[in-house]
């Protein structure tokens, strides 16, 4: 198939970027989206042009490295799919595909489609952990946890930290990410000891970094590749209220 790509190119963080169009022939429907970009880059290199910089690692939807705002949606049109899992079967022959980096003041573009998402690491460093001595894994049934709580904690823990929530939120809010991290620990007895301190510190860091405030719009949930629900944001709000009074 033949496609027309419109891609954001930016040499460096300081450079002024812009869109560049590419006509790409010989794309196979069986390709993944990232393979299509690999193919584009091979043609660019053959033509002595700079390849398009984009982030990727595991290519199986679990590392959270891939991003890309594809045709107006984070991770493209498939729904509950990371960009690396997206296939070219989602696109018609001859169609135009617009590829942009995540847009957020807190995620500055480093080069082309790569943004600096270290703000998420800073939020986790502020409190997204349990201060317990590590050692041998404890016996699994020594602390009983209700099935529904374990399930909910797991639903939150599958967040890969890709940043699609921030990218899709009209307010540029990171609340779904922070809520998922707060929830996964708040729901388990091991996380309760530091729950109050954790939510205060993580919210404070989120605000300090410059993310927007949550308007309960729901765009993050609709675009999250892992289907994380905004009911976790309600839990964060409860935890914050409980920690404040």
């Amino acid at each position: 198939m033949k496609i027309k790509l419109k891609i954001w190119r930016q040499e460096s963080a300081e450079a002024k970027g812009g869109f560049v169009s590419y006509d790409l022939e010989g794309v196979s429907k069986e390709m993944s989206f990232l393979e299509m970009l690999d193919y584009l880059n091979s043609t660019l290199i053959e033509g002595d042009e700079e390849p398009v910089a984009f982030e990727h690692d595991c290519r199986e939807g679990i590392c959270g490295c891939c991003s890309l705002f594809i045709n107006g949606r984070p991770h493209g049109p498939a729904g509950e799919t990371t960009t690396c899992e997206l296939r070219m079967t989602q696109f018609e022959d001859g169609s135009e595909i617009v590829i942009e980096p995540w847009r957020s003041r807190v995620f500055p573009v480093i080069r082309d489609l790569i943004v600096d998402r270290s703000a998420f690491d800073k939020i986790l460093q502020a409190g997204g952990f349990i201060s317990a001595n590590t050692g041998a894994a404890p016996e699994a049934n020594s602390i009983p946890i209700a099935k529904h709580k374990a399930d909910e904690a797991f639903d939150a823990a599958i967040c890969v930290g890709c940043g699609a929530c921030v990218a899709s939120c009209p307010n540029g809010s990171a609340m779904l990410f922070v809520a998922a991290k707060v929830s996964q620990l708040a729901l388990l007895p091991q996380g309760r000891a530091e729950a109050k301190k954790r939510v205060r510190k993580m919210v404070a860091k989120m605000d300090e970094l410059g993310f927007g405030a949550c308007g309960n719009i729901g765009a993050c949930e609709a675009e999250c590749p892992k289907g994380i629900k905004i009911s976790h944001i309600a839990r964060l709000n409860r935890e914050f209220l409980r920690a404040s009074i």
Partner: peptide, 25 residues
């Protein structure tokens, strides 16, 4: 106002998946 500051550059193309109402935005 602080939300506007959080997203200084808009996307060229936006095609939301749904899940959010016009009123909420």
């Amino acid at each position: 106002v602080s939300n506007l500051r959080a997203r200084p550059r808009r996307y060229l193309k936006v095609d939301p998946a749904g899940g959010s109402t016009w009123a909420s935005r």
